[in-house]
Design a binder for these strands. Structure first.
Lengths: 144, 144
DNA sequence: AAAATAAGTTAGTAATAACTAACATTGTGA
DNA sequence: TCACAATGTTAGTTATTACTAACTTATTTT
């Protein structure tokens, strides 16, 4: 269960996202998502190949192995949960939330993002008012 | 206003924390906090010296310059806010919260940690119950 | 089919940030 | 005072992750 580095997590997540949409993935697809140079991608792919998380014929499609798919799904799920949490709790656009989630996802452990999931589930307008200490929240509630 | 890297932020913050307690700071003090090797520290100090954020005579005390002090206070404040937020919202021990804060502090911008500050201020047991969707929160409140 | 374009790869380099081993300086106890 | 311990520094190395330039292979267009 050797852990992936931040950037490798980003790469495998990108491969997963592309593969789900198009059923195959190429270097240029990753380039569009991660906005890094092609050689950087090829480098990362080589590491992922060594770890047997992907397979790719020369000049060919990139495919996740079983193990890679598992890892990718984990990373992706984490990413989704964190994005939702950040979006809701800090009232961010999806774009900004994505960016922050991308960074945070390499930091938080299972315990934390399970809590994020719980919080997101219960989150609503009222929660937000309470969180940000809106003056009349209590009265408003009592008044019902 | 050239931004510091993650690790330089950690170093300058450590220097600040030590200086506040003891009125001087040495390599070994930083070592205790950051748990890295002495050469790593000396390396970082050299960069901070180039940036004129600290001064240090050979084999002597490490001191923050005016500019360095400003930077350090910024970083430290951010750190405190984030730690408090993480502690409260995820119900963590200070230790664990510190660790996460250390990482997150290099990611979030002013907008976000100002929101964290607001949320922390209003946070209490009830907020926590609501956040985690405790079943009887509503009833309990209504019952008063 | 040849030329042009697109996509992928290789080679070489740089920045960040860590490490160990070896050495230098400072401070302290016998 | 002199030896030893504690502290700090230098030199050299490693890993991660990115880059540009140059090259190869594949695909498309004329």
């Amino acid at each position: 269960m050797n852990k992936l580095t931040k950037s490798l997590e980003d790469y495998i997540e990108a491969i997963y996202v592309v593969s789900r949409e198009k059923h195959f993935c190429r270097v240029k697809d990753i380039q569009k998502i991660l906005k890094v140079s092609k050689p950087s991608i090829v480098n990362a792919l080589n590491v992922l190949k060594e770890k047997e998380l992907i397979v790719q014929e020369k000049y060919g499609y990139i495919n996740l192995t079983k193990e890679g798919m598992k890892k990718a799904k984990d990373v992706y799920k984490k990413h989704r949960i964190i994005t939702e949490f950040v979006e809701k709790i800090f009232e961010l656009e999806n774009d900004s939330a994505q960016k922050i989630a991308c960074e945070i996802e390499h930091i938080v452990d299972r315990n934390i993002y399970e809590r994020m999931e719980k919080i997101s589930k219960n989150f609503n307008e009222r929660t937000k008012r309470i969180l940000y200490g809106e003056k009349n929240e209590t009265d408003r509630f009592k008044g019902r």
